[in-house]
Write a protein that binds this DNA or RNA. Structure first.
Lengths: 139, 139
DNA sequence: TCCTACGATGGACGAATTCCAAGTCAATAC
DNA sequence: GTATTGACTTGGAATTCGTCCATCGTAGGA
């Protein structure tokens, strides 16, 4: 679908079998996987891939700005392949599922200079919390 | 200053020496401490207090809504005693320092029903990221 | 094809947090 | 004041998530 692989190659990202598989996993699934889930899916295609390699690759994709890291509470970080369109997240407080949302409004514009305490503000993350329909049904 | 202890007692929170010390630490400092920092300050008054006890007490204070848990990336969670006045956070991406901020706007109102995916949305957290003056000066 | 720097490996390590079984104690009842 | 009891505390083990490191392998240029 997307040209993630192609983009990476153009940017000079050294392409190995392992890195390709990690990128393909992220590219294929438009959900928010944990590092462990990425490892599991990658290992399905390339059984000898190592956990450290997956962490390395994910870390570089984050640095390259191709993937966003989403920290939710005490749980494992999740990796969001949809780094290009600006969006925020809706997290289920029971199961940790994440959905992308596009609220109106501009959080950055809502923070006046008097509330910035001399910080150089570079961005804002908005996280909505709630229970997903599945968890609500399971009551 | 505050009546945190009094409130807790009224709510039937069983008061032990350990719990009192943890509550006093949070009540005294209006900063955002990690569990370890709470332990250190508590141990200064009650040397034999155990780490597990601090975690237990913090967990209950969070459940009671007296303290907010603030997860910042891969670092240790921080505990915010200012749970009663609604506010958001400005985090230094270098040193992890947190400041309370009060932006205008209402994130919840900005999320239309069509973007809620059947979730029961209970709240929104807004986290601004940037560099604090100290870290910027240190360049 | 050959080189070589960069990537992969996996096991050890580390930080933060939770779990557990046994001992202790605050609050209530008498 | 004493007895009672269920809730709280303890500390060490266990878990979870992630990083480090020395060694081995290989992608991609010459």
């Amino acid at each position: 679908m997307s040209d993630l692989l192609e983009r990476l190659r153009r940017r000079g990202w050294r392409m190995t079998a392992q890195r390709r598989v990690v990128a393909e996993v992220l590219d294929g699934e438009h959900v928010h996987l944990t590092a462990d889930e990425v490892l599991a899916r990658a290992a399905a295609r390339l059984p000898e891939i190592s956990r450290a390699t997956v962490y390395n690759a994910l870390g570089e994709l984050v640095l390259l700005g191709e993937v966003r890291e989403v920290a939710t509470d005490g749980r494992a970080k999740r990796y969001d392949p949809n780094a290009h369109r600006s969006h925020h997240h809706l997290v289920c407080s029971d199961c940790g599922t994440i959905r992308d949302v596009h609220p109106g409004g501009d959080p950055l514009a809502d923070l006046p200079a008097s509330e910035r305490f001399g910080f150089t503000v570079s961005g804002a993350e908005l996280t909505y919390r709630g229970r997903c329909p599945d968890c609500a049904a399971r009551t």
